[in-house]
Write a protein that binds this DNA or RNA. Sequence first.
DNA 1: AGCACGATCTGA
DNA 2: CAGATCGTGCTA
Length: 188
Amino acid sequence: MSILERDFYARPTITVARELLGKKLVRQTGGAELSGVIIETEAYCGSEDSACHAHRGKTPRNAVMFGKPGVAYVYFTYGMHYMLNLVTEEEGNPCAVLVRALLPLSGRSEMQARRKKHGKELANGPAKLCQALAIDKSLNGWDLTLGQRLWVENHLRAAARDIISAPRIGIDYACEKDRQARWRFLIH
DNA sequence: AGCACGATCTGA
DNA sequence: CAGATCGTGCTA
């Protein structure tokens, strides 16, 4: 196994969002190791992107995005859900990749147990993914290069022809050009 | 201090 | 399609 280092994240957000497809996300908690292959991501590209939380400047919530790449940005929304993002680009450029879906590898039953509703799908959707992997605000700002609690490993590399791009989900408030940007990436 | 709304999910 | 459910940021 090889853990992704900071230089992997310190690159253009769209590149990182595409290359994260096929990588292995690992969560270590309470003795259990939960992991899965990343199969869906979205790029949020800094202050110029009206869909990005950092669009209106730095606030206590989004401060982590303005810091080092390779750090988790976890936030709470809809009064009940957590979202996992991985900070990208150089420090001070507030960009991140939202991790939207996983194909579970290890810890399937633990993930199932953590999900309040026991549907067949465990980690297809950013909120379900966080629920399955026990990701909450305590991981906001966590350094993914430490190889503890939460990290990403090399696994597979998705071929370009197997990647579908599409408009991002749930950003109706963004301006026309950013709503149309095909910055959601899925493995075919 | 008050308020509108959200990078969602579920079940009817 | 409405409801759950509350932190956040904007307005005043």
